[in-house]
């Protein structure tokens, strides 16, 4: 907000120049500096390309940006049409933000929620509640998303959202008769009461629409094609792949869940 009466009309010295500058003049003086273009380009590089910044690329971006008089659209077009944007080392190099992760799952399998607050609980457990950044500088991102507990929640998120939200204190169904199941349910309620908050992810009641996904998978799709469709170009580690049962005609859902649960799916 510009408060005319509070504005000091006197001379100021900015970057070695003296004059009765307005606020707009100061912004112009900043934009005149190439460093401003470099600074913004570096932020964009880190957000869209890789946490590990290649300063040579940043400098090329800054040239385009500066010479176009700060045309953001032009810069983004340059970025997305550059060959190096699609370098294998820039693919799957970033850790997805929690919202990227959840949105990605939703795009693959449509999900509806019985109770939408559940999504907020999930966002908080994962460390990114939308519209509530930790401070004015926003989410730190990258490795900051990951700690022991957030990683466990993240890895479980696909099976929680897409497989009817089974969580920590889980009775071993096959070992219990009906009476045992009742006792276990009662016990779980008690545990939840004692802990106050209850298991963090217990409140999410999601309804995945697997039918539409399974219908949309082409009949002749091979295992490799399905992997690259779900994980994009990220390679599944051979060790993990050998642990997953091969794709058959009848296990598409299980196979997709295995892929979404792999640490590789956390990357984008």
């Amino acid at each position: 907000m510009f408060r005319e009466k509070a504005h000091d009309e006197g001379d100021k010295t900015v970057f070695g120049k003296t004059g009765a500058f307005t606020g707009e003049d100061i912004i112009d003086a900043l934009l005149d500096k190439k460093e401003t273009a470099v600074y913004i380009s570096r932020k964009i590089y880190r957000f869209f390309v890789n946490d590990q910044v290649d300063e040579q690329r940043v400098s090329e971006m800054a040239d385009v940006f500066y010479n176009s008089h700060y045309d953001i659209g032009g810069l983004m077009k340059y970025l997305f049409t550059s060959d190096w944007f699609y370098d294998s080392r820039n693919i799957g190099a970033k850790i997805k933000s929690p919202v990227d992760l959840i949105a990605g799952i939703h795009r693959l399998v449509p999900v509806t929620y019985e109770n939408k607050e559940g999504l907020l609980v999930l966002q908080r457990a994962l460390g990114q509640a939308l519209f509530y950044p930790p401070n004015v500088s926003g989410w730190a991102g990258g490795k900051n998303w990951i700690d022991s507990s957030s990683l466990m929640y993240r890895l479980k998120t696909p099976s929680i959202l897409l497989n009817y939200g089974i969580i920590e204190v889980e009775p071993k169904e096959d070992m219990l008769d009906d009476k045992g199941k009742q006792m276990m349910e009662h016990k779980m309620e008690e545990i939840a009461k004692q802990q106050g908050k209850g298991p963090v992810l217990s409140k999410i009641k999601s309804q995945p629409d697997w039918d539409s996904v399974l219908k949309s998978i082409p009949h002749k799709m091979t295992q490799e094609e399905l992997i690259s469709a779900v994980l994009l170009p990220e390679k599944l580690s051979p060790a993990l792949l050998s642990n997953i049962p091969a794709l058959t005609d009848s296990n598409h859902k299980e196979f997709i869940l295995e892929l979404l649960s792999a640490p590789e799916y956390q990357m984008g």
Binding site: A93, K94, L155, L240, P263
Partner: peptide, 19 residues
Amino acid sequence: ATKPDMLTEDNLGYLYKTM
């Protein structure tokens, strides 16, 4: 399924290490 050569210095290696 995690093998030592997967604990690399990049972000994916960091996930495996944390895990």
